[in-house]
């Protein structure tokens, strides 16, 4: 499943939900809020999503991963709202019988999620300015 969360992500609980004796491999990915981007000191991040479309596109990407790779299960949660440095923005967990499929599917999921799911990131910089990433506009 693909979900959006307004609350902090709990990787322990998310991983526990994937527990399955059929799985011999579990690969997880955590995306964290970094304190800098392109030379600027980042103070906080804001994520905004088109909720219904994001969950639909996210579910589609998970389905694609299940078709491409031999998986037991896969899930992805993306945080929305204001995040502090070090907070987890995205969690992806993939289980499979063997590690190759789990690694490949996890990579596929994060790459596709970043490229396709309608979620936007605004960086707030130490100097007080902010910018919507990939939208080529800085504002004070």
């Amino acid at each position: 499943m693909f979900k959006l969360s307004h609350e902090p992500l709990d990787p322990t609980a998310l991983k526990a939900a994937l527990a399955n004796p059929q799985a011999g491999a579990c690969v997880t990915f955590e995306g964290w809020v970094r304190n800098h981007n392109e030379g600027q000191a980042v103070r906080a991040l804001e994520y905004e999503a088109h909720g219904s479309l994001a969950e639909k596109e996210g579910a589609k990407i998970l389905e694609e991963a299940r078709q491409r790779f031999s998986l037991v299960a896969a899930s992805c949660v993306h945080r929305v709202g204001t995040l502090a440095l070090g907070d987890m923005a995205i969690w992806i967990g993939v289980t499979a019988e063997h590690r190759d499929a789990a690694f490949a599917a996890c990579r596929y999921l994060i790459d596709e999620a970043k490229a396709r799911v309608p979620i936007w990131k605004k960086e707030h910089y130490a100097g007080g300015s902010s910018a919507w990433i990939n939208c080529a506009r800085r504002e004070v």
Partner: peptide, 28 residues
Amino acid sequence: AINDEFMPWNAPLKSGDVVTFIPPVAGG
């Protein structure tokens, strides 16, 4: 997107449609 489906830029509109314009995304 029209009515929560991604659509091509030249997709026709009809009355009642809900249209979303999607700026470059940046999740993850």
